[in-house]
């Protein structure tokens, strides 16, 4: 399934770019992320607990940042598998300065399989977009609270 959208991050472009690749920030902002561990260059192992309505499931997966062109764009892959199914989201995030911070546009594919996909077809689109929205909301809140600023090891060792 194709997915695309845009959110605004209340930070300057370079700063926003760095935050989006910071494992500490990602771990805090990704909905349900319980642990994120670096396993290689731009690659992380992730444990995630998805809770949605009465549904919940543990996912084991990885996060990968690639094709990094600071501060303009990078490719983000998030994938996970658990008892209730598996999912993979991959897309390019493009950053541009806008009023009030940085506009982050994304376009890519979400693929869901297993029980989740077989029985939750009508919800995949809605919930994918909701999870992305939650991520950016959390990121905005983190920035606003100044938490992100202290946590981000800018310029960091990511690139």
């Amino acid at each position: 399934m194709k997915i695309a959208g845009a959110h605004t991050v209340p930070a300057a472009r370079e700063w926003a770019f760095a935050l989006l690749q910071d494992p500490v920030v990602l771990a805090r902002c990704m909905p349900g992320c319980q642990a994120l561990e670096r396993t290689g260059d731009g690659e992380y192992h992730m444990k995630m607990k998805m809770v949605l309505a009465s549904m919940s499931g543990l996912f084991d997966g990885r996060v990968k940042v690639a094709d990094s062109c600071p501060p303009e764009s990078f490719r983000l892959t998030v994938e996970g598998a658990g008892k209730i199914g598996f999912m993979k989201g991959e897309g390019v995030l493009t950053l541009a300065a806008v009023d009030g911070g940085t506009g982050v546009a994304f376009a890519g594919d979400v693929h869901v399989g297993g029980t989740l996909a077989a029985v939750g077809q009508r919800l995949i689109d809605t919930t994918s977009r909701m999870l992305i929205k939650r991520f950016f909301e959390k990121l905005g809140a983190e920035i606003a609270a100044g938490e992100a600023a202290r946590a981000a090891p800018y310029p960091g060792d990511l690139y």
């Binding site: 309505a53 009465s54 549904m55 029985v119």
Partner: peptide, 8 residues
């Protein structure tokens, strides 16, 4: 959801 084990 419970019968599908999506909720446990």
């Amino acid at each position: 959801m419970m019968k599908l084990r999506l909720a446990t």
